[in-house]
Amino acid sequence: MLWTGLSPDEARTYLEEKDKSKRDKRMTMTEAVKRFVKDGDNIGVGGFVNSRQPVAIAHEIIRQGRKDLILSFQSAGLVPDYLLGAMALKPDHLSVQRMEFAYNGHEYAGTSSMLRYMTENEKIFIEDWTNFSMSARFKTASMGLPFMPIRSGQGGDIEKCNRSQVIECPFSKRDILLIPACHPDVGILHVQEADIYGNCRIKGQTFTCPEIAMASKNVIVTCEKLVDHQIIAMDPTRTSIPFFAVDAVVEIPFGCYPTVCHDVHYYDKIHLEHFKGLTDAFRKGDRESLAAYYDTYIFDVADTDEFIGKIPYKQLKYARQTESRSLELQTRLTPPAA
């Protein structure tokens, strides 16, 4: 069996020897990526399509540059596109060798031109899964199991191009699919709230963020807001990820911008569609426009402060004002012009 990331035995041994102390894990984004993201790593990407994508972490990985990365996720849009776009522009600086995933696209805004470019030109190795099988792979790992049976994903062509296996269930005597655990080297997640120790509170859907955190060797968390530990301890049933699963906490408001952060801000459709349009143009031969975007928003800025500083205030405000509000209140707002 090929284990991308850690094998179950390696993951277990690493955790046994890991410092699990309840200590202050705040650090800068630069330091977090420097310490926990290495060449060849399998990266577990948190969020779902264009919701709570760990954009700030992805930008820093792109700035620092890494080689031969593996991306594992169920459904994602912006983060794989950012990383694949960086590889398309500067393959000697950043490269992705493999993706294990169920969906890479933008739903209402269409298919991923970066996925198309990379696969249609045979530049990366891909392994297709389904949303459940990929989510269950993280869950399997989070439970300390090497595999799990699921009743999903067998019978078609997906099982032929991934490492799942169909067996006859020893109890029911019916065919069932076995999926292998996925232990990423590093999980990258954006959440609404965390304390200095790494206890995280996710608002809205958890996607597979808790499972990725428990499955990964190391975890970098960006949070909209750092909260007092007392707040967490007052209502620990609301803790989605416990501190000892987390290695780095970086407070970065708008750390998943322009994707949705439940209860904080809605999409910035203008920025998302702008980037998406540039990737579409790249696939059709216009390299310069995409390269200019990367220079402006990623390479020539030091951090997320400077990235967000380039977004017009009206767009940030509108994304905030359109989140968690009735349609009636939303329709009174004037959308910013693209």
Binding site: E120, N131, G153
Partner: peptide, 17 residues
């Protein structure tokens, strides 16, 4: 040609499930 499709679509997402 799984690794070199003519057109790559987004993938199963949850549809397969």
């Amino acid at each position: 040609n799984y690794m070199k499709p003519v057109v790559r679509l987004p993938g199963s997402g949850g549809a397969g499930d």
